[in-house]
Design a protein around this nucleic acid. Structure first.
Length: 461
DNA sequence: ATGTAC
């Protein structure tokens, strides 16, 4: 087993721990961003770097990092995609039985019932948005009649803890614009790297774990990647603007600035992030209900169960328990990943660890794993994917949409699109080799791989 | 990431 590589920034700051293999060490520009992050006020312990580390030009801190604070909210340590996350849905569908017309019918139905961008009209009421922001998964559970077993397969049951039980205080933390946006963007997928995929389990790597998780070779698994949509991004944007204007309320002057979590402003910000996260979890639940309805309808089998395997976020700021401390954990492209010792109350995951998605690109394999005990070093997190080798502008310069579509055809992967013009950003060759990434995760005991999957049909912006 | 500035 590898130990994480560790460096100390030249100009001081926290140690930076690299949970990856030496061939995945980031380039100089990313390293200097990490040094700035390591010097941010309020952070404690170390900066955890994940195997999918990559710089994103619009962000001050790189994707694939996790940091923690005793008493600080550090908005620039994450990005605007609050509660961006993934869920995995199991099935008893044998992929070899699926014919092209059935896949076309299913994905036409999905595209018709799950819009990529905002709905043209309001699909939920103002009161529903308010309830979702306050209750998250709890609202969804009563709306859709979800079982307790299903709720326990969602990070924090999709309901973020806030420091107040008073709904009015939570809603008072939300700016006007995201509250309004929520009425139109509920149940939408989003574009960019968001997707809904049908995958086939093509290799069982750990038969014992696969059996415990209900995963069998040849079966279909659905992976969904989306978040809180404009509710989260507008919330973040409103707060960033508030604190980055010249007349800003007090904050430290680092580019990656922080607010004391126990200050009025910090507590309000944390509450807004919790509320937007609730919306993100509810959004993934709503889309899953559409998915289940579409599968049952187009495959003409109302008895199909489609159980949730797990749902976790990879962009979040949350107060969590860690080694006997309470820490504000900031995940920036790091999936929450609890090992067996941190899931004592769950009948299956207390034995296996939390199921974790490791999506490759749309043209490559994905993996499902379980969190292993060394995630304590990453504040219980793993990489949320393969990570990029080309950033989005580089990918746009090198590939065209037509090339991406041809590559998918050549690989016999059905690609269903809504028609956004930015799919070249997601060209498969823009991402690291997922098999090397999964090896690094296993070598560092972040996750144990359980099954490998191949993409069969992909729905993308 | 976001109908990407009211």
């Amino acid at each position: 087993m590898h130990a994480p590589l560790e460096t100390t920034p030249k100009n001081g700051g926290l140690p930076i721990k690299f949970f990856l293999t030496p061939d995945m060490m980031p380039e100089a520009a990313t390293l200097s961003q990490l040094e700035v992050l390591a010097n941010s006020a309020g952070l404690v312990h170390h900066v955890a770097v994940l195997p999918d580390i990559h710089r994103k030009s619009r962000n001050l801190s790189p994707t694939g990092t996790v940091v923690a604070a005793n008493n600080a909210i550090v908005p620039r340590a994450i990005d605007t995609g609050i509660c961006c996350g993934m869920r995995m849905v199991r099935s008893e569908i044998e992929v070899r039985d699926l014919r092209a017309p059935a896949l076309d019918a299913l994905f036409d139905e999905l595209r018709a019932t799950i819009p990529v961008l905002e709905h043209e009209t309001e699909v939920i009421s103002k009161d529903d948005v308010a309830d979702i922001l306050v209750q998250g998964g709890k609202w969804s559970q009563s709306k859709y009649g979800l079982s307790e077993a299903e709720m326990n397969c969602i990070e924090d049951r999709g309901t973020m803890p806030t420091d107040t039980a008073d709904p009015a205080m939570i809603l008072a933390s939300m700016p006007e614009k995201p509250m309004k946006k929520g009425r139109r963007c509920f149940g939408t997928l989003g574009d960019g790297n968001h997707f809904l995929e049908l995958q086939e389990i093509v290799e069982v790597i750990d038969p014992g774990l696969a059996r415990q998780l209900g995963l069998e070779e040849g079966r279909a698994v659905f992976m969904l990647h989306t978040g809180s949509r404009s509710v989260g991004s507008k919330t973040m944007k409103a707060y960033l603007e508030t604190f980055e204007e010249k007349s800003a309320p007090a904050r430290n002057d680092s580019p990656i600035w922080s607010l004391p979590a126990d200050s009025e402003a910090g507590a309000k910000f944390a509450r807004a992030i919790a509320a937007a996260s609730n919306f993100g979890f509810a959004n993934r639940i709503a889309i899953t209900e559409r998915l289940r309805a579409a599968v049952r309808k187009t495959l003409r089998d109302e008895s199909l169960q489609l159980p949730l395997l797990y749902d976790c976020a990879h962009v979040s700021i949350k107060l969590e328990s860690w080694n006997g401390e309470k820490l504000w954990v900031h995940r920036h492209g790091g999936s929450r990943a609890l090992p067996p010792s941190q899931m004592r109350e769950h009948p299956v995951f207390s034995q296996t660890g939390q199921p974790v998605p490791v999506p490759g690109s749309m043209g490559h394999a994905s993996y499902i794993g379980v969190a292993d005990e060394k995630t304590v070093g990453t504040f219980y997190s793993i990489n949320h994917g393969a990570g990029r080798v080309l950033d989005k502008p580089e990918a746009m310069a090198q590939f065209t949409a037509a090339q991406v579509e041809k590559e998918m055809r050549d690989k016999n992967i059905r690609l269903y699109r809504y028609g956004a013009d930015n799919i070249a950003e997601q060209a498969p060759s823009s991402f690291k080799d997922i098999s090397r990434v999964i090896k690094a995760m296993a070598a560092l005991s972040l996750a144990r791989p359980v099954v490998r999957l191949r993409p069969v049909a992909v729905l993308k912006g």
